[in-house]
Every structure is written in C-alpha cells, then in structure tokens.
Amino acid sequence: SFNTVDEWLEAIKMGQYKESFANAGFTSFDVVSQMMMEDILRVGVTLAGHQKKILNSIQVMRAQMN
C-alpha cells in the first residue's frame, strides 16, 4: 500500500500525472478512490492505455479499502 497519491502514481508508472492530480484536488486516497472516467479525463489523462491503467488501479484500491 502507498502513503501518498504521488507514490501510488509512481508505482503504477503514471508519475507524469502527479501535478495534474494535485492541481485538480485529487490528493488523498479517499478522493482518488471515488474517481470515475470523467475525473480521469478532467485531470488530463487522454491516452486510453493510461486511463485503463489508472482506472484498474483505482478499482483495486477500492477493493482494498472495504
């Protein structure tokens, strides 16, 4: 498990989005775990492969939080 959203993004090789997530207010796992595709688009993730990777990881995160 990760301590910060930045660490999580690095771990899934999506570190290039750290600033975008932070600027959009997605700075805690409570918020990130609620993200939908529209949120991912809003933070500027436009590549389908990256969207899928982030969404898949969020689903895993949700499962671990319950």
Rank of each mutant, 00 (worst) to 15 (best):
A24L: 09
L41G: 05
I12F: 04
R42I: 09
V31C: 09
R42W: 07
S1N: 13
V31P: 04
E10Y: 07
M14K: 01
Q51T: 06
S33P: 04
Q51E: 02
F2W: 15
E10A: 07
T27I: 11
N66S: 11
V31E: 10
F21E: 00
G25F: 04
S57M: 10
Q64W: 08
I12C: 04
E19M: 14
S20W: 06
M61E: 03
N3W: 11
S28H: 08
M36N: 15
T46A: 08
E38F: 07
N23L: 14
I58T: 04
M14G: 02
Y17R: 02
I12K: 02
Q59N: 12
G49W: 15
M61Y: 05
F29R: 04
L47T: 12
I12M: 10
A11I: 07
D30W: 13
Q51V: 12
K18R: 12
Q51L: 08
G25W: 03
F29S: 02
E38T: 11
V45I: 12
I12G: 03
V43N: 01
A11M: 09
H50N: 04
G49S: 15
E38W: 08
M65Y: 05
W8L: 02
A48G: 08
S33Q: 08
F2I: 08
Q34F: 07
G49K: 14
T27L: 08
G15K: 05
E7T: 07
V45K: 01
F21C: 02
A22C: 07
V32S: 01
R62G: 07
K52G: 06
I58K: 01
E10H: 06
D6K: 05
E7A: 09
A11S: 15
G44T: 02
M65T: 07
V43H: 01
F21S: 00
V32K: 00
I12A: 03
N66C: 12
N56M: 14
S33C: 08
V45M: 03
K13A: 14
V43Y: 02
T27Y: 07
G25Y: 04
G15R: 05
M36D: 15
N23M: 14
Q59F: 12
V31I: 14
R62W: 07
N23R: 15
L41F: 08
I54S: 00
V31D: 08
A11G: 13
G15Q: 07
A24W: 10
D30M: 12
N23I: 12
S33A: 11
L47Y: 11
T4S: 12
Y17Q: 01
V45Y: 02
I40L: 15
K18F: 04
K52F: 11
G25P: 01
E19R: 12
V60I: 14
K13E: 15
G15V: 06
I54N: 00
V32N: 00
V45L: 02
A11W: 13
L55F: 15
